[in-house]
Write a protein that binds this DNA or RNA. Structure first.
Lengths: 242, 242
DNA sequence: TAGCACCTATAGCGTTGCTATATGAACTGA
DNA sequence: TCAGTTCATATAGCAACGCTATAGGTGCTA
């Protein structure tokens, strides 16, 4: 009943913890279970991870690396908004494949514990949205769009996890996904919308230029000029213009 | 250090558990802490609630009643979509006011434990969306819209809870809220438009912004600022960058 | 071979969730 | 009026929990 004895104890502990967590269905996993499955004695756990929480943090960190790897795994399609869709779907799939890990990562977040994971996930999505902004496809700041989309993505994934697997309807995901992308994208070009969606072309262009400048290291302006320029650009792109 | 001795022990246990949970910051709350604060002995807890989990389920149920009461508390404005906005804001505020309770209710949801709460919350929102649908303001089925909006609402609330209180930016909430409502509302009458072919660079973006600025009479910059801004914009857009 | 980190194990502490059992109070029916 | 019954609380204690004081073994460098 123990994991292969050839791997180093630290790794065996990690795997045992991850395995028991995945099977736990929310019930607490004891250190004794973990160390027994790993074929190791109690103090070894505390030597390597300091804490039960330290061990679980390490499991979460490993899970997050897997998540990031999945989010980067596909080649950019050249259509940034399409790539955002794939990031979204990938996120949902990760959550459904490893629900317990996901619940620890995104369901149990507290200010004092793990905001770093959220920040990293946001950065990942913002990176992709920068490309959309550079292509003039965004009508809000990439950072705000990333935070908003990720929040909805997390909410949808949690809801799907909460449903019995048999009843899961992924339309909830695709519908919410497209609604969010639709709302932040510059494309629709229809009449002004309530609540600030549908910005003027000045804002769209300013956001696109801002993103393009961030990515290109233009040297046409001195650093002090650039600083002031970006400040004005920000002013233009954050407040609706006539 | 014990709660008023006049209330029945069952109620005292409930309040003690809720109070300790709220202060716990995620750390586990022991039954001994609870029973001591309630001024009661261990078996009393098990007599009334069977289980530690049973007690916490009761706390959650009470919290949910409070949530529902809050969601019903305001008079319908006659504009269903406006009422949805208020429901959304109310939901977020509930989560920020009682983060620990909220995390148990919506952050730790598993198929085998509490989908009932989600179903009830969805029903609450669907009820309101039915009015919008009856007024011809909805793009999709009320049930699907309710599920989608609630999912985003939960995601946003969790993200805000995860942030240190000082850094919380409620714009994330209003932006996501309006994006979701915009997407499900019948007003725009145009479908999502996946990625356009606008491949862009700093130069193209600068030119686009320049043209947009000329046409829009933005007043975000003073005239002297604008003059310098346009000059820099010209410099950027006439010489290839990066 | 001596010394020294590093890693792991034995044994056990204090606390946890929970319960077997007993005691008291309140109601019932004759 | 009072035994019988039911409900509610308390005493005391069990097995399992997270964690640690201490010590022993291993492989390096000198």
């Amino acid at each position: 009943m123990s994991l292969d004895g050839q791997l180093p104890p630290k790794l065996r502990l990690l795997r045992a913890a991850a395995e028991l967590l995945a099977k736990s269905a929310g019930a607490p996993v004891s250190t004794r279970q973990i160390t027994q499955l790993a074929g190791v004695s109690a103090p070894t756990l505390y030597h390597h991870f300091g804490d039960k929480e330290g061990l679980f943090d390490a499991v979460v960190a490993a899970g997050f690396e897997e998540y990031v790897a999945g989010e980067r795994d596909f080649a950019p399609s050249g259509q940034p908004l399409e790539d955002i869709r794939r990031m979204w779907d990938n996120h949902v799939q990760f959550g459904l494949n490893q629900p317990e890990l996901y619940l620890v990562m995104f369901g149990n977040i507290r200010p004092e514990s793990r905001p770093a994971i959220v920040a990293d996930a946001e950065a990942l999505m913002e990176e992709m949205l920068n490309k959309a902004a550079a292509a003039g496809q965004l009508n809000v700041q990439p950072r705000e769009a990333a935070r908003s989309i990720l929040a909805a993505n997390v909410g949808v994934t949690l809801m799907l996890i909460a449903e019995p697997a048999a009843e899961r309807n992924l339309e909830l995901s695709t519908m919410t996904r497209d609604a969010m992308i639709f709302a932040v994208s510059a494309e629709p070009a229809s009449g002004p919308a309530p609540g600030g969606a549908g910005k003027s072309s000045v804002v769209v262009a300013a956001i696109a230029l801002n993103a393009a400048l961030q990515a290109s290291h233009s040297d046409q302006l001195s650093s002090s000029e650039l600083k002031l320029f970006l400040e004005w650009l920000h002013r233009i792109s954050t407040t609706p213009a006539g």
